[in-house]
């Protein structure tokens, strides 16, 4: 055990790098996912069939074809078509597209939950479309979205462990190295899982804080209790996030 601890301490610089890579993938993927989600989410609710249909197809495609397949497809197959991306870029693109498709449903559902009266009042004030969305509708939809986006963010973090198999030195890679060095699976994987848990916990805090802030802006501001910020909301996978999209 004391050997284990020594090896763990020796590997801390590697852990730092691993956490950095995992965070790059998670936050990069989340950023891309958000862009994808906004484009597809708004696309999926335009009246024009020429925008709506392709948006729906793209959403269903990236939701339906499994993250594992997507990431390896981008890594092994895409270069044969002449597009070679760095492994980190592959991970970010795969995570961003996959979770972006899920988040698109969250965006669409939340936008639809904003009362039509809000759009109408904005029209009555003669605001332009972009202005209506940016200043009136989105800030309200945002408060509805955050809990579900928080879920997706955790799912995305968990999915990022796949990157180990496309040569990235992330937290899972560090875990695997530690296992080789210590030959102690329980210790090494225990450490690895705890690192993931801590990252997930911090991300959840961040999202809870964002949610409280968004609610306060809407004047539903109960001063957040510590429990609200530091508590873990039940994490659910992407399928369910969509399910709640319309009603939450």
């Amino acid at each position: 055990m004391s050997d284990d601890l020594q090896l763990l301490i020796d590997s801390l610089p590697d852990l730092g790098n691993g956490v950095l890579v995992t965070l790059q993938m998670t936050l990069g993927g989340a950023l891309l996912a958000m862009v994808v989600a906004l484009v597809l989410g708004f696309g999926a609710r335009t009246p024009s069939l020429w925008v709506r249909a392709p948006s729906r197809v793209v959403i269903e495609f990236f939701r339906g074809t499994s993250l594992v397949v997507q990431i390896f497809w981008l890594f092994y197959v895409l270069p044969q078509f002449g597009f070679k991306m760095e492994a980190l870029a592959v991970a970010i693109v795969a995570l961003g597209l996959n979770y972006g498709a899920y988040a698109a449903e969250v965006v669409r559902g939340s936008i639809e939950s904003v009362p039509t009266g809000q759009w109408e009042a904005a029209t009555a004030l003669n605001l332009g479309w972009l202005h209506k969305v940016r200043r009136v509708v989105f800030p309200q939809a945002w408060a509805l979205m955050i809990p579900q986006l928080a879920n997706l963010l955790i799912q995305l973090l968990k999915g990022s462990a796949l990157a180990f198999y496309i040569t990235l030195h992330d937290v899972y890679w560090w875990t695997d190295e530690l296992q080789r060095d210590t030959r102690d699976t329980f210790f090494s994987f225990g450490c690895g899982l705890i690192v993931y848990f801590v990252i997930a916990y911090i991300l959840t805090w961040g999202m809870n804080w964002l949610e409280e802030r968004a609610k306060r802006r809407l004047g539903r501001g109960t001063r957040p209790r510590l429990r609200d910020v530091f508590g873990l909301k039940p994490g659910v996978p992407s399928e369910i996030a969509r399910m709640k999209g319309g009603t939450a």
Binding site: P115, R135, V136, P139, Q140
Partner: peptide, 24 residues
């Protein structure tokens, strides 16, 4: 003016009023 008021909950009272005069 609407039956259900339709004020923007993400803005304060004064922000509701000045939004369109400034931007429109």
């Amino acid at each position: 003016v609407f039956q259900q008021f339709n004020l923007f909950p993400n803005m304060t009272v004064i922000e509701n009023i000045i939004e369109a005069p400034i931007h429109v």
